[in-house]
Computed example of a mutant assay.
Amino acid sequence: MSHSTLPRSPGIDLLRGASILLVVVHHLGLRLPLHKTDAALWLPVFLLKGFIYNGYEAVFLFFVISGFLITRHVLERDGALPTVDWRAFYKRRVARIAPCLLGLIGVLLACHAMGVPNYVIDKPGQSPLGATVSALTFTLNVYEGRTDWLPGGWDVLWSLSVEEVFYLAFPLVCLTLGRTRWLVPALALLVLSVPFTRAAITDNEIWQEKAYLPGMGAIAAGVLAALARARSGVPCRGARWALAAAGIAGLVLVMFSGGWLWRAVHEGYMLILIGAAVALVVASPEDGRAVPYTGWLQAMGRASYEIYLTHMFVVFTLVGIARMTATDKAWGWLWYAPAVLLAWALGHLVSVYFSEPANRALRRRLLRPASATAPAA
């Protein structure tokens, strides 16, 4: 069993932390709109809207980061994509994904059975069994596109469906197409198809957001970024600063354009978002040096998977308290900091005391060398 020796990148953790921050405030902002609170007396409305209405875009940042990291680890462990150890690859995905996924589904089913508000599945055509099967088969996005939105705790699993279907195919593509010259062009074509695959879906808002191909295009961009980084090496300091500046500018443009960017390029704005994410992951440092004043965001990034799966418990709880105390209107802005802190704390606890121990235990068991499991002669 080989072990990863890649140093943890504070830049990647920072980007993941910023992404999960946007996801948390987005789901709170849908229920306590920041621009409809007294915060609008102090800050421009376009700034407040940009802060709370980019959760979907933040998920695409996660997709790019995911493709980048997975590819880098495959290159480190197996030397090249065409020589990927597909059995070990799948075992590592199971060890990382399964514990939290199964735990979340169990808690959501218990909440449904107890009739907890915001957790009951009661729309026509939906059922706890249907939601569970779709979550476990990574088709929850298809299920929602066919039946309507699920409760928020379930709904977050749409992105996992996109990601894991990509990774189910990834080793097989590497072992076949990776042995030819067509892998990179195929990945590039998938990236460039993002605006067109989104624009082609006009009759189903849910499926337009959650279809497989656009998200896979973002993951493919991360794969290409990792391949470019492996071929060219770590950019020099000046190049890293230039890439980071371009990436930040692209993200700011997408988040705070106030609608004019959409009117100018329509679905093409997704390529700007993906390009900005690529620039930032390529610019991430390798030496483990901390990015000043961002330790809290980096900490959120280290537990981003756990925060992503569990943050709706915090959001629903705080929104309920805000409405009971009549602080959901003018004073709604007061709930944002507690929501972020509590989501971070919950995700951190789940990571430290459940998902990481389960991940390590499963890896030890699943990746045990054959000689260690063979019966004694």
Rank of each mutant, 00 (worst) to 15 (best):
L168S: 10
S304T: 10
A303Q: 01
E267R: 09
T137V: 06
T37D: 07
T325P: 02
A18R: 04
V184A: 14
Y119R: 02
A330T: 11
T83F: 06
A242T: 14
A283Y: 13
R198F: 08
P82D: 01
Q298L: 09
L140N: 03
A58S: 14
G320H: 02
R181N: 13
F89V: 00
A80M: 07
L150W: 08
R31W: 03
F138N: 09
R146H: 10
R231P: 00
P171Q: 03
W344L: 00
V184Q: 12
T327L: 14
M114F: 14
E57Q: 15
V94Q: 10
W86E: 14
I274D: 01
L280G: 01
K36Q: 15
G268L: 11
M1D: 10
M300N: 03
G259M: 13
V314W: 00
Q126I: 07
T202C: 04
Q208C: 13
L48D: 08
A239E: 14
A343I: 00
D13L: 11
T327I: 04
G238C: 07
F316Q: 13
R92A: 08
I70N: 05
G11S: 01
R363Y: 06
R16T: 08
L30T: 05
V25G: 01
Y212H: 09
N54W: 04
L366V: 02
A40P: 06
V142T: 11
A186C: 05
A98I: 07
W333D: 05
G178V: 10
F170I: 01
T197M: 12
A245V: 13
P195N: 09
S284E: 02
V165Y: 03
A230R: 15
T5G: 09
W42Q: 05
G258D: 10
P124D: 12
L129Y: 06
R365E: 09
G79M: 06
L157V: 14
T139P: 04
C111D: 05
D155S: 15
A110G: 10
S304E: 05
A322L: 02
G295H: 12
A95G: 00
H311W: 05
L30E: 14
A220S: 14
F170P: 06
E163K: 12
K49H: 11
F89E: 13
V191P: 11
V352R: 15
L172Y: 10
F166P: 07
Y212N: 09
G259H: 12
R198I: 01
R77K: 13
